[in-house]
Design a protein around this nucleic acid. Structure first.
Lengths: 262, 262
DNA sequence: CTTGCCCACTCGTCTATACGAGTAAGCGTG
DNA sequence: CACGCTTACTCGTATAGACGAGTGGGCAAG
């Protein structure tokens, strides 16, 4: 409850049109931007700010909720409000599915994370046959039922990505693709062994705020959007052989693409 | 102030651990998901919900603020709270910079929007020389000063994208690239005329919540993230000849990429 | 010294109230 | 009919207070 160091935060402008709680949010944001608070630092407590500005607690909380929505800070019950640290990001290059990366036994995710010095994990493995959603059905060319492979990826214990692959039953049923462990090189290697030489991929990218279910699965802080990526894999005959629906914590990813100028 | 149609929203569960304002948000979200409220529909007013649930107004407002953060609804002062309509999306295909699209006179944005039946606009045009940021400088290969071309794109009057192109001065200075109107085919056509035949592009994609400045420029509703795309164009000699920094309203875009399976 | 409790501090939830300001419709006046 | 006012309804902002619950340090008992 010690008073705030003077000069750290300014005063309110009573003549301003800007709402008090916005002014407070502005000052905190600026202090963070200027480096007066660093990643992981604790901001002044609600009580501190109530004293400093002479406003009610709800007003201060209102300010914090703005910054939370911007993804700048996060509150921890019983501890305080902290500047949200930027987690290490995972870069996804557009050649990540190149055939040469498929030769080794381990999955691309594991190899790459190990190389980056992180501890990778894959869980929530679920493999089952199910009815195709209208969207998946359309992408796979009017299939009714599909094989769905769901898994969640974690980096150093933090969930960063949730992915589901959908494959037509006439391709996947009875093969190793339908097994929890698809073997070295993953399902793409198996698809090629089955005669579906991969020709190209199509990826659709959206960004949006997460659903409550996604917040839970990815343990997302408030103010963190998700990147929603839908990849369709085509074989040499132009047939869609897999649709992969991926939801990623946006603060953990940078996608990178190489495009020919053709 | 007429009572809510019964059955539209349920009751609270006082035995639940879940906070009251979350329960209310859950019920509203579910009602929206189930189609009881459609895009653009007005939700029950704060006063309606206060009566219906027997809670205080701040609790109801708290519920609305959750849904607002999720990008599901938006409030209009004096009118009510509405289900946020999904705006028409602009699809960006990875071949959008293909040479064949550059032959016509009009810019890709205008052509494409016209074709989609929308009314395109470009404003905030600013062209000037300035100091390169460390990031831009690194991408362009240690240049100190650059030509910056800023513009904002609007679709049917709504700002959807804000982009800045940075070009090395030794390439752009004194050419038509430094003019407000770069001529038919845009700056890429001019670059090729200047002997920089474009070889490939590299695009980096991030998603995050917008800064206050971005909220203003793009007139973003709360709960709408931005897609941040940084494209670098390389000529045949492997030199980076342009960096384009683009911030897009995420609810207005789907990015689409074709990748070879190599 | 170790264990366990208490307490101070933190954010989380909720109530009740007040006034301001934007919107739209109705109504009366000119 | 047209204009402007009133009024009711809407969300926005802010205050003051209460209790709950998670956290961590200090202190006292064993």
């Amino acid at each position: 409850m010690s008073p705030l160091p003077s000069g750290l935060l300014g005063d309110l402008d009573p003549t301003s049109d800007r709402a008090v709680f916005r002014q407070i949010a502005d000052q905190l944001r600026e202090a963070i931007d200027r480096g007066r608070f660093h990643e992981g630092d604790k901001l002044p407590s609600e009580a501190d700010l109530v004293d400093h500005y002479g406003v009610s607690r709800m007003t201060v909380r209102n300010s914090f909720s703005i910054l939370q929505g911007e993804g700048l800070v996060h509150a921890e019950h019983g501890k305080g409000v902290f500047v949200r640290p930027r987690p290490p990001v995972r870069r996804l290059a557009s050649d990540r599915f190149a055939r040469r990366h498929r030769e080794q036994g381990k999955s691309a995710f594991i190899v790459e994370a190990d190389a980056a010095g992180s501890h990778p994990q894959v869980d929530s493995l679920e493999v089952k046959e199910e009815k195709a959603s209208p969207d998946v059905s359309a992408r796979l060319g009017s299939v009714r039922r599909v094989l769905a492979r769901r898994r969640r990826y974690l980096l150093d214990g933090r969930p960063v990505e949730f992915a589901t692959s959908f494959l037509p039953l006439d391709i996947a049923r009875g093969t190793q693709i339908a097994e929890p462990n698809p073997g070295p090189g993953g399902i793409y290697a198996r698809l090629e062994e089955l005669g579906h030489r991969l020709d190209h991929f199509e990826e659709e990218i959206r960004a949006r705020m997460p659903s409550p279910a996604e917040v839970k699965t990815l343990r997302l802080a408030s103010g963190v959007p998700v990147i929603h990526l839908i990849r369709t894999a085509f074989d040499g005959e132009g047939r869609a052989v897999e649709v992969c629906d991926t939801v990623m914590a946006a603060d953990a990813y940078v996608l990178s693409y190489q495009l020919p100028a053709t």
